[in-house]
Design a protein around this nucleic acid. Structure first.
Lengths: 145, 145
DNA sequence: GCGAGTCGCTTGCAAAATGATAGTGACTGC
DNA sequence: GCAGTCACTATCATTTTGCAAGCGACTCGC
């Protein structure tokens, strides 16, 4: 599917998915977050074909979620790091992970622990205004004009 | 990309994306949530080709996120409705929407209001244990064995 | 009871994206 | 030199997506 600026309409979900709406992109973000910032690390970790990885990396770069940074001139070595927008996306991955654990979670899975308390993190999406989990209160959808 | 049970490994994000890791699936869920439950409604709302919609609907059904229900025998009419797993996914869409609004939000966008307070919902992913937004506290990743 | 219209699809085929494999250029280390 | 690593690109097969047309079951209007 081509990214279509016009048809994306007024829906913010669509706007979000325009930029990261595919599996590999999200998995790349996940891997960069856990410290796999270099091309070869990503490729072997994900088991992705090199041409596909290249394309995902440039798409994510163009979308402003990651940046390429040269950290060594000799030998020339680059790493990919998250931009602010990229880091902002990580909580969504955590939420997807929580969903995956709950609804598709056979076998042993990795998890995030709070570094201080040592407890397993339990990501929930709440409304920042009320603090109530999304879904626990009735909502109304408002369209522009 | 074929869904690969083996390579999905121990990552819950991957587990989640195995089931809904594409744009159309998420947009279908969004539309069903806002009351567009019938085939023709979905097709015209999304501007998706009918064969593609059919495939997404059966994939989502097989993945257990939606169910097909006949609500009229004569004429025979079906609607798709969210299962528990499907409803559980909606907060993630809200989070993606919030991200889209923030980082790709030109123009007027639709939004959710709290039906009681009338305020615009501001979805945030928090750790249910601490109540702190994900990203505000250092985390540690733990792998099984 | 006949023709037009709607709904919920399926089929056939073209276009685009993805994936496997091989290769390349810049370098390091021996 | 020569092997090896890293970060890719190029080529081509396979898969997925998308468009357009059509179809069966029904309803509605006359």
């Amino acid at each position: 599917m081509a990214i279509d600026e016009n048809n994306s309409g007024t829906c913010p979900v669509d706007r979000g998915l325009m930029r990261v709406g595919d599996r590999w992109s999200m998995l790349v973000l996940r891997d960069i977050e856990r410290g796999l910032t270099r091309y070869e690390q990503l490729r072997t970790s994900l088991g992705i074909a090199p041409n596909i990885l290249s394309r995902r990396l440039s798409a994510l770069t163009e979308a402003g979620l990651i940046e390429k940074r040269r950290y060594s001139e000799r030998p020339p070595r680059d790493e990919y790091q998250l931009t602010v927008a990229g880091r902002d996306f990580l909580p969504i991955l955590m939420a997807i992970g929580a969903w995956g654990r709950k609804h598709n979670g056979g076998g042993a899975l990795s998890r995030h622990l709070d570094a201080e308390t040592g407890e397993a993190v339990r990501p929930v999406v709440v409304d920042a205004n009320t603090g109530a989990p999304i879904g626990s209160r009735p909502l109304r959808l408002e369209y522009p004009d």
